[in-house]
Write a protein that binds this DNA or RNA. Structure first.
Ligand SMILES: [Mn+2]
Ligand SMILES: [Mn+2]
Ligand SMILES: [Zn+2]
Ligand SMILES: [Zn+2]
Lengths: 131, 131
DNA sequence: TCCTTATTGATAATGATTGTCAATATGGAT
DNA sequence: ATCCATATTGACAATCATTATCAATAAGGA
């Protein structure tokens, strides 16, 4: 009984068009800027739903803000993020997935979740920095 | 001109005795519980300082709270954390280190850093939950 | 002991996120 | 097409961790 609303579509579209990680606050501000009357709470709810449905990925910025991104690849995966320009590339990490599950089990931990992100300087920013 | 205060010592001691990751809020509550008159702002300031001085490790819990821990081991390592009671076990992950470096290089990223933490329910909390 | 000023802590302010709830809109049933 | 039960929305308040203020205090060199 999941209903289709223009609000949900608006969030999905805005997220896809952007490509990089965005905060709920900023996405809402941009939507309003473009003339939308969508509410902030709805943006939060929709983003949370998208993450649950594996249609978007979330991560925490160093200052604690939650950032969201429309994922092109299906299923669980991780990210390689440029800490200078924010450019993001999706990466699979099967070896790490297995490792996380194994190490949790070995220590008697259940319901394991893992946070795996790689931050660095992308090729472009690396070149600019060394120049 | 860094001055030594009993407040700073109290935080360092409390953090060391605990061993696991704690939030500033909880550490402050425990200190007060034990009779200390230390202020909350001071706990926050001291923890931030300890991290800067590499005397403590910090990480973000899944719900966005900042957690701190007095680290015994010097080198780079990761953690297996109970998201219910905060119990922490240090884990080494050589395979993950290598993987992170490799995947970064493959995408042209330089100066790679990684965030790798596993959250779950420890054996004790798992038993309590299922009971 | 004196004095400069780093440090403290009660309190207010900030800011992201979540809860509330009456009004609205969706989609299946009639 | 019309009804209707209820999922969804959005303005607003509430929560909660963290930070900023700033007057009072105390560390430690002179
Ligand atoms: Mn992704
Ligand atoms: Mn550690
Ligand atoms: Zn870049
Ligand atoms: Zn536990």
């Amino acid at each position: 009984m999941k209903r289709n609303t223009w609000q949900r579509e608006a969030v999905k579209t805005a997220l896809s068009e952007r490509g990089d990680f965005v905060s709920a606050q900023r996405l809402h501000a941009d939507l309003k800027q473009a003339g939308s009357t969508i509410g902030l709470a709805t943006v939060y709810r929709t983003l949370t739903d998208l993450v649950s449905a594996d249609e978007a990925d979330a991560l925490q910025s160093p200052d604690g803000e939650n950032l969201y991104r429309a994922c092109s690849s299906e299923g669980h995966h991780h990210h390689l993020i440029c800490r200078n320009c924010g450019h993001t590339e999706e990466i699979s990490a099967e070896a790490v997935e297995a490792w996380a599950a194994t190490v949790a089990a070995e220590h008697g931990f259940t319901q394991p979740r893992h946070v795996v992100d790689v931050f660095g300087l992308c090729a472009t920013c690396s070149a600019a920095t060394s120049a």
